[in-house]
Design a protein around this nucleic acid. Sequence first.
DNA 1: GCCGTTTTCGGCCCGACTGTTTTCAGTCG
Length: 567
Amino acid sequence: MSNREIAAYFKTLADLLEIKGDNPFRIRAYRNAARTIETSGYDFVHLVQEGEDLSKLPDIGERIAQKITEIVTTGKLGKLEKLKKEFPPGILDLLRIEGIGPKRARILYEALGIGSLEDLKKAAEAGKIRELPGFSEKLEAKILKGVSLYKKEGIRFLYADAEPRARDLEAYLRRCDAIDRITIAGSFRRRKETVGDLDILITSDDPLGAMDHFTAYPVIKEIVSKGPTRSTVILENNLQVDLRRVDNRSYGAALHYFTGSKAHNIAIRKMAQERGWKVNEYGVYDGKMLPIAGEDEAGIYRLFGMEYIEPELREDRGELEAAREGRLPTLVDPEEIRGDLHCYSDFGLGRDSCEALVKKALDLGYAYLAITDRLDHLTCAHGRKCAPLEEYLETLDTLQKRYSDLTILKGAEVPIDEEGRLLDGGAELERFDLVIASADESLGLDREEQTRRHLAALAHPAVKILAHPSGRIISRRNAFDMDLRRIIEAAVEHRVLLEIDARPERLDLNDAHILQAHKLGARFALGSVAAGADEMERIHYGLYQARRGWLQSEDLANTWKIEHLLN
DNA sequence: GCCGTTTTCGGCCCGACTGTTTTCAGTCG
């Protein structure tokens, strides 16, 4: 069971209790706990099995700790089962409709017995909804529209997919005379692996002109709301964009506020509260509501006696304490990358020749490059007719002689079988400078088998990197069901680097796992896993996640000098 | 239901937009 699945119990519990009209603070407590479970990076199944005291974690107390244990050991939560019986199962879908929150969902259910989107559509079409208290003809029409636009759960965009849209819109806004400063804030600025919407901050002396320009952006599908301070639109690809306008004197506060994360902001506001101050998007105010900070972001942190916190760290995962104590990491910088440690040539899955990859590496200013075609593609494994292994190694040797400015590491990615053996196809692994073990198949193994398989592979003396360790593909495939903590510990013991696979749909390990693995003493290796020279540049997506995982250059093998790396 | 550098009780982040119940609740971020 994944952390996300455990967290879902608490989210559902919170939603249902909210419809029921339960104590809002208890509801918030469940949501806070869900966030901790999802973002802390601890493996909660592992914690429960080891009998760890969960209530030490933030926002998890005695009662929620018990509930987590119940979920992990029985797969059920009694309180939730009971609550579910009080409502039709489809009622939670109503909350996903724009304009319907818990209060209106409850009214719809109690007055008209509406318990699904189907019911909702029929009632709206029959004109029954406009009669209800708190509803109107206009809202009824909005709801009907909302049903047809029903968004499936949690549509989020891969960072890499949102990036070009964001840059295009930013360029469009820059062409407007009424707009002065522009920053794309939100999870985009924090470089989160997926972004739910874009939050764009501007300054302007002509707010209406600025908003008019914004809502005239050609690829807008719908204008959700429009005001002098905030406007919201939906683009044709369903990406939501919020534009916020503030005065220059509030820019820092607004930037901080709209960069988030929500949890980070709440933590800051609580700190303000303790001092009798108040924080909002316009500034920090003292007890007399006089502004004491807000023009620039760093000034806000300074006011609280903290170092500046990089956006990637703002998740309330300990960064505020670290900033107060002056022990924030110096995050690894793109300039520090000296090489790529995972890519494919046309000997295997790649499109480009080894030489094309070498030239690209030189273009990128690298000192080394590991070309790591899959060994089963280089040998006769899987009934392939050719065995280009010798040619592969010779090619790399020849290239090395021709390009002396770049150290070429002769690499191989070797699949792990169900028992944890390396499928080396009979090749001698000593002939390679770098062996990457990867578990791509056998997703169906149970937790113990999957864990054992990985532990066996990590114990193999030739293995230096464990590829995409969790195995997840964002919004397509869950992580392996395995005890990741034990695997991390084994990697530390055997001095195996944990990969950060930079493919935008992988980003594996993810930020939370990186953070936890780092605490356990792990070291990491970035790989673009490029199948062509053009894809080598995407290594920066992996670097962003490394930064979100608090990594410094010493933690990331790609920043090491070649002598250190080889050692 | 969580939490505590006064507190084990009594708090719990803050504001914009919408629609209209013409003074604010509901929703949303």
